[in-house]
């Protein structure tokens, strides 16, 4: 059902199996890992998903795993689950940017709801990534021009501001439209906003 899968990392096997079983009834695919190291060795950037991580695990904690993933540029939505409703740990987790913080025993519906938010967030993140990837193809000058156009500047105004001819600006805009696959100003604005967010 879901476009994404869930990566579940918990050192307790019973918890892993039970949550996977439950999420299975919702049609959510779950891949389980007994410890963060295995996951880190296994993770594929090309297969994004929502992470469900036990906060307290031997060797590497859930938060440390999150940070390690971030270092590798993987910022998938993460739901932290913990046996302790520890306020300090909760604050640290949110500060680090995790999506949600649930205490065990985890209610199935609450978890699924959190996951769905994660999926949505993942959708948004994908667009942003796409926008960034598109914009990354632009030269510095083209990016400058795009930002100005997105702010509603006419070609003439841009040419004046950059002290070049209008024709040159038009040539840039043609290049930009080619690279982004659209000549719509509205689309330019959206992409610029996404990449900037």
């Amino acid at each position: 059902m879901s476009r994404y899968q869930v990566y579940l990392i918990d050192d307790d096997e019973a918890v892993r199996e039970a949550l996977a079983f439950l999420l299975g009834t919702y049609g959510i695919t779950v891949e389980t890992f007994g410890d963060p190291q295995t996951f880190l060795a296994h993770v594929d950037e090309g297969k994004p998903g929502v992470l469900v991580v036990d906060l307290r695990m031997p060797e590497v904690s859930g938060l440390q795993l999150y940070q390690k993933l971030s270092e590798r540029g993987i910022d998938w939505p993460t739901v932290m689950i913990t046996g302790h409703g520890d306020v300090a740990a909760c604050r640290r987790a949110f500060k680090a940017g995790i999506q949600d913080f649930l205490t065990k025993p985890v209610d199935g519906e609450v978890l699924v709801e959190a996951l769905q938010q994660g999926f949505a967030s993942l959708d948004g993140r994908l667009e942003k990534h796409e926008a960034r990837a598109l914009l990354a193809r632009l030269t510095e000058r083209e990016r400058e021009v795009l930002d100005m156009v997105a702010q509603g500047w006419a070609s003439k105004e841009v040419a004046q501001a950059l002290d070049v001819s209008v024709r040159t600006i038009d040539a840039h805009r043609a290049k930009i439209a080619e690279k982004l696959g659209t000549s719509s100003v509205a689309e330019f604005v959206r992409l610029a906003l996404l990449s900037g967010a």
Binding site: D12, V15, A18, L22, G83, K104
Partner: peptide, 23 residues
């Protein structure tokens, strides 16, 4: 606190399985 954690694990599993079974 450690023991509570230890008890939470089976409880989590039981809750999840029960909800799955209900579904």
């Amino acid at each position: 606190s450690g023991i509570a954690h230890e008890l939470t694990q089976p409880l989590t599993a039981v809750l999840s399985r029960s909800q799955a079974a209900l579904r």
